[in-house]
Design a protein around this nucleic acid. Structure first.
Lengths: 183, 183
DNA sequence: CGTTCCATGTAAAACGTTACATGATTCT
DNA sequence: AGAATCATGTAACGTTTTACATGGAACG
C-alpha cells in the first residue's frame, strides 16, 4: 500500500481557499502553519505539477506584474481533499532532541541538561508571548461570533507550550534539589 | 555545514550505558524511547559500522548462545557523545496531521473534525493511563531517593498528553457550541 | 544603486521506513 | 512440531532538506 501523501493534501487544502502560486503556498506554510507543518519549495513545485497531472488543480494566468503562475483547485481536487480530511490521522511520530538528550544523559551531565532546559524555557516564554498576542487580537476580531477552526490550532500552540514550560520549570527544580542533596 | 546526525549520537548514548548489539539497541528505542524517538534497523546497523569506522565504538565477541555482535563505546566515542549532549538542540520540527486537517478544514467539515478529535481523545486517555501506571511504579521504586533523569521524560509524556487531552475536550465543546448557535 | 523581496524551479544529498532474505533458538 | 522471538543485514523506495541557478520588481 502506498503511503498517503500529506504534502499533496496540504497543498490542495491551501488551494481550496483560493488560487495561489507556489510561492504563495510556501509563504502560507511559513507564516501560519510553521508550528505544526512545513513544506519546502523542493516539495511544493513538483507536487503542484503532480496535482495538475492528476486533474486536482489547473494553472491559470495571473495577469499580475510578475505574471506568476496561479493554480486553482478543481472539483475533483476538492472532492479528494474532503475525502482526505476524514481519513484517520497517523499516530504522530515526533522526534524531540531535548528529551533524547535528557534520556541518554547520566547524572554527571546534570549541568549540561540544566543549561539546555533553561534555554528551552526562555524560548518557550517568548514564543508563548507571541501566540497570546495573536489570540487576543483574534478574540477582539471575532467577539461573540463563532471563531474559525484555525483558532483551535492557535489554542493548541498555547496549551502545549504552557505544558512544556511548566515541565521545564519542574525539571529544573528537581535538578536543583538533587544537587543540594548530594552536597 | 553538514547536519548533526542525531542517529549516531542516539546510538552512542545507548552504548554509553554498556555493550549492546544492534538488536538490543533497536529494542531499547522501541520499548523506552518510542514516545519521542525511534530508529529502525535500516538506520542502526549501517550506523554501527560507521561508528566503528570513526573509532567511536568497537566490536566485541559476546560468547552468548547466539553469539551476537556486541558493540562497546570507545573513549573517543564517549567524549564525542558528551560533546553532543551540550550542543543546543534544533528547534523541534514536528508534523501534526490532526492540526493540519483542522487548520485546512472549513466550517462545512465540522463533523469530520469532531470525529477525528474524539478518536484522538480516546487514544490519549488510554495512553495516559499507561504512563501514569509507569509513573506510580517508578515512584514506589525510588521513594525518597533522587529519581533518574529518564523520569523527566516520562513526566513530559504525562504533562503534554494531559494538555493535548484538555485541548481536545475544549475543541469538541466549542464545535458543539457553534452547532447550537447555527440551528 | 544596492538590498530585499518576489518568483520558479532543479539536482543532489540526506534522512528514514519498509520489505525482503536468512537462519538459529526458545517456548508452548 | 509449530510459533514466536532472537539476530543480522541489504535493497528499494519514499520523503525532505539544502544548495544552486536565475532573474525581475520594489524600496530606500
Amino acid at each position: 500500500m502506498s503511503r498517503i501523501n500529506n504534502t499533496l493534501y496540504a497543498i490542495l487544502g491551501i488551494l481550496a481557499q483560493g488560487p495561489r502560486s507556489g510561492y504563495d503556498i510556501r509563504k502560507r506554510f511559513d507564516e501560519s502553519l510553521r508550528f505544526f507543518w512545513s513544506e519546502s519549495y523542493g516539495q511544493i513545485y513538483p507536487m503542484l505539477k503532480h496535482a495538475v497531472s492528476q486533474g486536482y488543480a489547473e494553472q491559470i494566468a495571473s495577469g499580475g506584474p510578475r505574471n506568476k503562475k496561479l493554480y486553482r483547485i478543481t472539483a475533483e481536487g476538492e472532492a479528494e481533499f474532503r475525502r482526505w480530511l476524514a481519513v484517520p490521522v497517523n499516530p504522530i511520530s515526533y522526534r524531540d532532541e531535548l528529551l533524547l538528550r535528557i534520556y541518554l544523559a547520566g547524572s554527571e551531565d546534570a549541568d549540561a541538561i540544566a543549561s539546555l532546559l533553561s534555554k528551552e524555557r526562555d524560548g518557550l516564554e517568548s514564543g508563548l508571548a507571541v501566540l497570546r498576542a495573536q489570540e487576543e487580537q483574534a478574540e477582539r476580531l471575532y467577539r461573540g461570533r463563532a471563531a474559525p477552526p484555525w483558532m483551535m490550532t492557535l489554542r493548541y500552540g498555547i496549551l502545549s507550550g504552557e505544558a512544556r514550560l511548566r515541565w521545564c520549570e519542574e525539571s529544573l527544580r528537581s535538578l536543583e534539589t538533587n544537587r543540594e542533596n548530594e552536597v
